[in-house]
């Protein structure tokens, strides 16, 4: 399989993935939010391509809409995006070959977000290694295209959607992420990280701990890793 065939395989895989549907739900609400806060449709489309992380986009829209200073917005966006780093670290070694260039990794890293990460982590090992970067980019391009179209659609339509439907759309994110993480869990460390993360985040948030998600990841992930090490499992 060539890189171009891998790319087309990624496009086809993404379009029939349940995460394409999840992105429709997520980005319809991002588009509607941008509309409500007075941004333009082309701006939210550009934001989706450039940031490509729904939580950071929601934070940026609401913070700027509320009149926060540029520095405050940048800090809030930056804090929400720390989670992208371990995702990129865990994914790239699976995708690259010894001949992969640095700029190619920067492009694939840009496409890395929760939906693409879950699907690439599961499916890339079945793709021949020389086609994996193309496959991941195909996933990313297709998912991003769906997201941009949904954000623009949501910008013009979503403010008239019934509350029950919007609630169901918002529920797509946690349910699909949870099932995706369950499906991707093979080793004990994956299951422990999942359980620790589910348990820690609400406790830290209730305790009004600052940077709760960051601590959830560092404490929960490190604890899962250490238990695996101590038990001697792989």
């Amino acid at each position: 399989m060539t890189a171009a065939q891998g790319f087309r395989h990624g496009l086809r895989t993404a379009i029939v993935s349940v995460f394409a549907l999840v992105l429709v739900g997520t980005y319809v609400s991002v588009g509607a939010l941008a509309h409500d806060f007075g941004f333009s449709a082309s701006w939210v489309a550009a934001q989706t391509v450039l940031i490509w992380a729904a939580p950071a986009q929601v934070i940026m829209i609401t913070a700027m809409g509320a009149g926060a200073s540029p520095l405050e917005v940048a800090i809030a966006v930056g804090l929400s995006a720390v989670r992208l780093m371990p995702m990129v670290v865990a994914l790239l070694p699976i995708l690259r070959t010894p001949r992969t260039r640095g700029w190619q990794l920067v492009i694939t890293a840009h496409f890395t977000a929760a939906s693409m990460w879950i699907e690439a982590l599961r499916l890339a090992p079945d793709v021949p290694r020389e086609a994996r970067i193309g496959f991941a980019n195909g996933l990313g391009v297709a998912f991003m295209s769906v997201a941009v179209a949904s954000a623009v659609g949501g910008y013009f339509l979503a403010f008239s959607l019934p509350t029950a439907l919007v609630a169901a759309l918002l529920f797509l994110t946690p349910s699909s992420f949870l099932i995706g993480a369950i499906r991707n869990s093979r080793r004990m460390v994956d299951w422990l990280a999942l359980a620790f993360g589910l348990a820690l985040a609400p406790v830290l948030a209730l305790g009004a701990v600052r940077l709760d998600l960051l601590w959830t990841g560092l404490v929960g992930g490190t604890a899962a890793y250490l238990v695996q090490r101590l038990r001697g499992g792989r």
Partner: peptide, 11 residues
């Protein structure tokens, strides 16, 4: 493990 724990935390 860290990335999975963060994702679970988001959920």
């Amino acid at each position: 493990a860290v990335a999975t724990a963060v994702l679970a935390g988001v959920v």
